[in-house]
Nucleic acid binder design. Structure first.
Lengths: 344, 344
DNA sequence: ATTTAGCACTCGTTTATCAAGAGTGCTAAC
DNA sequence: GTTAGCACTCTTGATAAACGAGTGCTAAAT
């Protein structure tokens, strides 16, 4: 177990290092607020902390930098939740104050604000429309071979997909299909839609539509599309300002991964709700061994529907970023929920 | 006027420099194919070409690199249109072979292919939906205060916008509005929509709907959104592989500009149809003084609706990129046009 | 009149050396 | 348990020397 003094020193070193990005020496720690020991004493403690794995030395006679274990301990036990500055609060507030009606807009802007307020890159996943309920189906024929199928959910989300029309379907068939679907499926959550179609609507369709099988493929294709979660980015360029990414090769590897939606998913997808902090190697990607990712889920109507996260160097301003993310994910959840529930 | 030999040398230098990214010396030119003069002769010619402004020296005793004027002359007079390799042709063909039905998909994939085949960053604007014609309007109430308005065009493009409902509009009003709009506006190109509403539909609405003024704001908001052109990117990370962008500061400036849709517009927007090549300072952005941008418009039904372009270092593989872009913009135009015209 | 060989010169790049400075670890004194 | 002192380590920056690629110019060759 670490002594209080060790904890204090560890904290001071990490706080300092987060600011300066340079190895911290015993002298500067001995001069920091509330520390009343000489550099020599600090040095002894630092040697112990290094032996315990909380600190590292870039080379034998340099100052110390935090190890991943050090950051982990800092994050888990030392970090005091940071109060947002007035400016930050104002910024976030103004985002949610405007009555923006489209979920996608709110989510996009959250990404932008998050990256503007930090010097890191922000990523937002979602919101998933899986839980939301079908409000309306519309099928609009464009010409003899193609039609646009449109789904609208109770959250105002619109999904559309252009499909080829089987020869066998004529425009009265389309109308019939749309009518049947609307009749039977309004209020059904999207994730149950496919099942419901098979179990309850198939028979009906069969009666009224000549080639009901073709009609299925058609609805399936449209549903498929709504499953993909969207990804929004903000301020990727910010990372280039961080001294740890002055090496182009490193940045390249990071950006390559961030360019692919599916790996971004893996990076951010939380295995639990609430705040998740992944430091360095905890990210399981070599390119991200010098990065930390902080993410939090946001909810609609109590159920998590997406993730808001930030990517920065392991030397991240954890207290501030954590405060911001918590605040934003809360705000985002409230905004989404307020927009579309309880008849409001 | 330049002699044939000077032109030949200029071309050889540029071809070489595009490959190697290093200043070219007289010796290496004298050994290139079809050149039968000694280094000393070449040196004399090179000195002349420098005096004429086609070449530059990074420092007094180094080899030559092309100046912007040099590139310009190369592009305008020397460059022989490059045949695409079989692999490239195949790649592009396979893109347009699949019957993708959504314009946005095709456009996105074009960006991806373009950046995959080059080592540069691709950008695609559009397609504009301005010329396309209204097929259907739908208004779907979500709750007492909000509704989703949906526009579908004859090209299968769907635009949706969530709007607040004025207290004064009830759901029968909404139906009426939608019916009136559909009746009167089907087939009208989007860019004429607003005008048409005011001139021809206003009166009708006034008769049937209590607060017709509110109804307008509503349609306007939705139209507004469809005006923004979309921007797709591909392979921005590629730029990091180019030796001229090993300097983080440069890359940062470039990426910052590429992150803003409106500056990207300015960079790519062609003042004429067809192929446009902007070399270095011709881009009018300081950050892009070492970049060239090659872009071409693509069309729907004969009218230009978007731009496909590529951003790379001034030392760009002009012949290949030009070949590719021409091929792609042609393919893109054909694909779009075939998808939605002549009842096909 | 061209072309080219020869050569001195320039300038960037690399390598080695050195001094300065920051920081450590250890010992011995407090 | 704490700290002053000091030798030692390692990075950083500056300076200089050696190297090499490439030039410009002159004078000879074609």
């Amino acid at each position: 177990m670490l002594t209080d003094r060790q904890l204090f020193i560890l904290q001071a070193i990490i706080d300092n290092y987060i600011q300066s990005a340079e190895p911290i020496g015993s002298r500067s720690i001995s001069k920091s607020d509330g520390m009343s020991y000489s550099p020599a004493t600090i040095r002894n403690e630092m040697a112990d902390l290094e032996e315990l794995g909380f600190l590292e030395k870039p080379h034998s006679s340099s100052g110390r930098i935090p190890s991943e274990k050090g950051y982990r301990h800092y994050v888990d036990h030392l970090l005091l939740p940071h109060r947002l500055s007035k400016k930050e609060i104002q910024n976030v507030r103004s985002l949610f104050a405007e009555k923006i009606l489209e979920a996608e807009q709110v989510v996009k802007q959250s990404a932008t604000i998050l990256s503007d307020l930090t010097s890191y890159a922000s990523i937002v996943l979602g919101p998933e429309v899986f839980e939301s309920k079908l409000k309306h189906v519309q099928i609009i024929p464009l010409n003899a071979q193609a039609a646009v199928a449109i789904l609208v959910t109770d959250t105002g989300h619109v999904e559309n997909h252009t499909v080829t029309l089987p020869e066998s379907l004529n425009s009265t068939d389309l109308e019939k299909i749309a009518n049947i679907l609307n009749d039977r499926l309004e209020g059904v959550p999207l994730y149950k839609l496919q099942e419901k179609i098979y179990k309850e609507v198939a028979g009906l369709l069969k009666q009224h539509v000549n080639s009901f099988h073709d009609a299925f493929r058609f609805t399936e294709e449209t549903l498929q599309k709504s499953k993909q979660e969207k990804v929004f980015y903000g301020g990727k360029t910010n990372l280039l300002s961080q001294p740890e990414f002055k090496d182009i090769e490193k940045v390249k590897m990071i950006f390559e991964i961030l360019e692919q939606d599916h790996t971004v998913h893996e990076l951010l997808k939380p295995e639990q709700d609430g705040l998740v902090i992944r430091i360095g190697q905890e990210n399981n990607y070599e390119a991200f061994e010098d990065c930390s990712i902080i993410s939090a889920t946001y909810s609609f109507d109590g159920k998590p529907v997406g993730t808001i996260g930030i990517v920065g160097p392991t030397r991240m301003e954890y207290p501030r970023v954590i405060g911001l993310i918590q605040h934003l994910s809360k705000g985002l959840s409230d905004a989404l929920t307020n927009l579309y529930t309880s008849g409001n």
